[in-house]
Design a protein around this nucleic acid. Sequence first.
DNA 1: GCGACAG
DNA 2: ATCTTGTCGC
Length: 232
Amino acid sequence: MVKEINFNSEMHIQHRWDLTPKEATQLQNKLASHISLEDTGQRFTTVAGIDVSYTLSENKAHAAIVVCAMDTLDIIEEQTAAMPITFPYIPGLLSFREVPVILKACNKLSIFPHLLVCDGQGIAHPRRLGLACHLGLYLDKPAIGVAKKRLTGAHRQLGIHKGNWTYLKAGDEKIGIVFRSRKKVKPIYISPGHKISMNRALSLIRRMHTVYRLPQPIRYAHRLANESKGII
DNA sequence: GCGACAG
DNA sequence: ATCTTGTCGC
């Protein structure tokens, strides 16, 4: 039974992370009811790309956060953090493996970004609580999930041209957008994490693309996460 | 029971 | 994700 959901002084949700897979699943169902898919109307001038890499030989997870200017995508700040891996990889429970080390890196930020872009799903998740939802909810910040593969849901055939997109659906429910960011290249899966709408999530992610498959903040974070393994 | 399955 | 080199295609 998971009943340890608390609120800190700023009324942000908090809870333990050392849960069993069964407890984690139950917690996701409770947390999902707190996710907001409404736009806050806030102007996003800074965006953070977030990614985690692993060193299995050392059993460590390395998180990287790269804060960029939303208009130019120039890098403003970078932070990393490492932590022992304590939760197994189980499809659907990724956030319990990655959020703790991401939070550790977030605590080092001198200026907190307006928007978080995670390498993983948002609501395009079996219980509508992917990594981006969990992180956004825990930090009470707008967040978007950008995944390289589908976790759940179905969609119609996608056109091969850059910019083509279609909804990812679970029955009649729209849970994400399958987006072709490059011609003839595998699409990416965009879904709202928290405090953002489906349309704005797509609009924002589109603006973060240059000539690569993944949005720049994610690419930067991926590179940094790998670099940090050699330094630490 | 079988197939699917983010990173 | 990670373990790993060169190689095929636009």
